[in-house]
Design a protein around this nucleic acid. Structure first.
Lengths: 149, 149
DNA sequence: TCGAACTGGTCTCAAAATAGGACTAGACAG
DNA sequence: CTGTCTAGTCCTATTTTGAGACCAGTTCGA
């Protein structure tokens, strides 16, 4: 009766969700992109139970998404910062943001926005094709690997 | 002691995760992108408990991600198909796939791949800038809305 | 046309995950 | 030194999940 896992799935989507697809992990990553680094910062900002946060941070460190480094303020404490692997989650966070913006706010309702260095709102993520035209869902399909026996 | 919710958060990422950020919803959506439509197909393919699946499908229909339509095979049953809102989750699923491919498989380990109409593997998602150069995490920041009082 | 099997659920129970808070060891500030 | 802050650990109550028994309506096969 264990929670079902997908760590061994053939599908990268399933593995990704197995690794970071819980209620908290991506919010922690989002906060890390926002510059939060300390245990207490995450805990206060998310309102997460401390035991939960401890467990999630540990898992994210194990996965290589975050790493612990000496605190940037010179104290004896530790910071949690994104690794390269963690920073590669950027498109995941951005795609969720864009879907949420477009679908979960009533017109005119305020929300935080992602801006570039000039303060301009960024455009939408696109999946480029060889030809240069962005690919839509209907232009693609998933090629499965042969099933194990 | 209810599971904490983010349905009212200012941050679109938090709302998106509140809506679809659980263990099953995005896998159901992925399967829908793969062409699955029937209750039994999802149940068999995911190995999800029926009660869970019933609850998740109901929630996805409520959210407007899926809708129930008369079965395409002419039987008296129903199909679950992606709505426009559901199809807009495509970049979310693709970004998870790409992160999973790059980070959760050992070299040479087989996995399913996303291909275009010609059978070519698709490229990576990019966040375009005005200038045409793709934006990276470090080129962006989140502008928060003023806190409610 | 009838019985068997399939479909899409509901219901129940036990196991696992989560929320919330009390408690604590070491760091730090005055 | 003393009190406070940080980053946890540990405990308990509650919620969520997993697994499967059960069931009504639909479809199939002979």
């Amino acid at each position: 009766m264990k929670r079902t896992g997908f760590a061994k799935a053939d599908c990268p989507v399933a593995r990704a969700l197995d690794a970071i697809g819980d209620w908290w992990s991506l919010l922690i990553v989002r906060d890390a992109f926002d510059g939060l680094r300390r245990f207490g910062d995450f805990q206060e900002n998310l309102g997460i139970a401390k035991g939960m946060l401890t467990a999630r941070l540990r898992k994210l460190v194990e996965l290589g998404v975050l790493e612990q480094v000496a605190a940037s303020d010179g104290s004896a404490y530790q910071d949690y910062v994104l690794t390269k692997r963690g920073r590669e989650l950027f498109p995941v966070v951005v795609s969720l943001r864009q879907w949420g913006e477009a679908n979960l706010f009533v017109r005119g309702e305020p929300h935080s926005v992602l801006v570039d260095a000039q303060g301009e709102r960024v455009g939408r993520l696109v999946l480029p094709s060889k030809a240069g035209k962005p690919l839509a869902w209907s232009d693609t399909s998933v090629k499965k690997v042969a099933r194990k026996r």
